[in-house]
Design a binder for these strands. Structure first.
Lengths: 352, 352
DNA sequence: CTGTTAGCGCATTCAC
DNA sequence: GTGAATGCGCTAACAG
């Protein structure tokens, strides 16, 4: 535990005043080459690291962060992300962060466009956190932020053709492979059920998951194409009819996955149909899915770490502002957890 | 983001000086009843919370923490715990923590006794972190620490008859149930392989895991007692002979678990024997186990979060010292992760 | 360009 | 008992 050197100590080592050291650390004002070299040597030798917290006290700048993510539903995926934001803000409560939330409806591209345009109007904007759903609007937003020199980070998914400062996601291809592992399906009898997305094309995360699953099947000698079915994510009565029809028409189905967080709809339908012989693997640690896991209508949940994504996004930005490091793209791929009925209890509250 | 109130602001609200507020917050010196009430009201209203970091700057006390855990082996369980310690110490590098490491050999009770007696000799000891293996020596140590009024916290396992300030563990009974879930064994053909422990009795964690597994089997209608086999954890040649003999004598065995971190020994032996038809479920994210998972000789690993245990232990103690809250036993039960070959890559480095 | 000074939130020490 | 003064690491504003 070598004690951290202070600016004052660095100044002594380099034979200059603390003010000069500060100027060099933060690249502000002009410093003679001679002193710059002496100070940089001292910083290096001492392994100097800014004390973020005392720095924040003196700095007294308000950091403005805008965040545009899908609206959180109680117990849903995005409310976990928000919990991560909240945890980080609590931990950095000594830093003055202005938090501008601009959520949008993930099923409505207009709502997204409107939220994004509000992002650009935020006064004194320092950074943006984006939970993207729609590709083109996000690309447009990012281009504008690039030209304004405002850093942005992605949570949950990354959008191609953009230049984020950091990205916090899970590997969706691996998610799909894990589905294959957990289903442990035989040659025929596998089905992929998906929600119908209104208008806009399918979410990129689901597409990548499906690729992962298909790759797994190929690697394990299963060549029969999985059966497919779409169901409504909004009209539950309709969904139940669609799902019910599918299982009646395909009585051989024994292994099923839903590649987004709406698996509980299938689980509840299968339960009503009395089909406990179907193994169902679903995604995300949402309240509805947990209930089904508990009841036994879902076999297993594959979970990302939404709270960790949110927490890390803020942590990254705070470090960035105080250490004033330049842009250096950082992608953090978070773990993918497998949750069964048995280990469900120990995941409560701790999904960081 | 309601800005945190400062001591100065609290003082103004209560019509006193900052010094008086400080005296009340830290319960030092005498304060008149009238002012105490006024200040406490103001603290309450403002939701005042000490800024740990600026507090640490002024406080300038060195916190001495002794830690006695089993010696870490590169890539092993306890080296993950140490990584968690290191992460926390880095995060709190602005706080002056004196770190006294007193590791012991987990297979040697004398070494443990000797480490524990050194703990008691540490000058200015403020707190102790204990990774316990042996019951009685730990109870003795804790009794002494109790009488000295020194707080201690447990990581990895808790010892009965002690009064820790906090405990950071996983639920071992759940671990055992998850073994059952993953094995998915049939009526007969299940075996539990265990390492022979020299002298001292079996680790409490394994005992609880076994109970969990047996409960799972009972709940799922499997009544045949699992077969058992012991093998050496130190002499690999001997271990391979013991394991080989067992499988020759019990050719029906198809589902196997090792309830501590030495599963790789069984995996390597089965691989040599060409027995790829045995499903092996093991414990802990160690380098050897990861290799076997990668190779396919282990089906699945059940992992605790050793790094999170270490990190949280220090985090707890630091908060305790700066918020100066009284003893209020806190048990944190960390998640239990299930790792397959597929999701192994995304667990690297991030096991907090 | 560079050193000095003041002030942030906090804990401590010293008059009164 | 209590307020004022000092110092911690840091940043910013000011004076040469």
């Amino acid at each position: 535990m070598a004690k951290q050197a202070s600016i004052k100590e660095i100044a002594q080592m380099a034979g200059v005043s603390p003010g000069t050291v500060d100027r060099i650390i933060h690249n502000r004002g002009k410093v003679s080459e001679k002193r710059r070299i002496a100070v940089e040597k001292a910083l290096e030798e001492a392994g100097y690291k800014t004390n973020i917290h005392t720095s924040a006290v003196s700095y007294r700048k308000t950091i403005t962060i805008a965040v545009s993510c899908p609206m959180a539903i109680e117990g849903g995926y995005w409310s976990s992300v928000e919990k991560g934001f909240q945890d980080a803000l609590d931990e950095f409560s000594d830093i003055d962060i202005r938090w501008v939330a601009l959520p949008y409806d993930q099923f409505d591209v207009d709502s997204c466009n409107s939220a994004y345009s509000k992002v650009l109007e935020v006064e004194n904007l320092d950074a943006v956190i984006i939970g993207a759903t729609f590709e083109e609007p996000t690309q447009e937003l990012c281009t504008k932020l690039d030209s304004m020199g405002i850093p942005y980070v992605f949570v949950d998914s990354s959008i191609k053709g953009t230049a984020p400062w950091a990205v916090f996601v899970s590997d969706q291809h691996i998610c799909g492979q894990v589905v294959g592992r957990l289903l442990d399906a035989e040659e025929s009898g596998l089905a992929i059920l998906a929600t119908r997305r209104r208008g806009s094309k399918r979410a990129t995360n689901s597409i990548e998951r499906e690729r992962g699953l298909l790759d797994f099947l190929k690697d394990h000698g299963i060549t029969t194409e999985p059966k497919r079915c779409q169901f409504s994510s909004t009209d539950i009565t309709l969904a139940e009819r669609e799902i019910g029809d599918f299982f009646r028409e395909n009585p051989e189905i024994r292994w099923v996955t839903v590649l987004n967080s709406r698996g509980y709809i299938v689980a509840d339908t299968l339960k009503k149909l009395g089909r406990s012989d179907v193994r169902l693997v679903c995604f995300d640690f949402t309240a509805d899915n947990r209930r089904c896991l508990e009841e036994g209508s879902i076999y297993s949940l594959i979970c990302q770490r939404p709270a960790a994504q949110g927490y890390n996004a803020i942590h990254y930005l705070v470090e960035h502002f105080f250490y004033k490091v330049g842009r250096k793209e950082k992608t953090t791929t978070l773990p993918i957890d497998v949750v069964f009925k048995e280990n469900l209890p120990c995941y409560r509250e701790s999904n960081r």
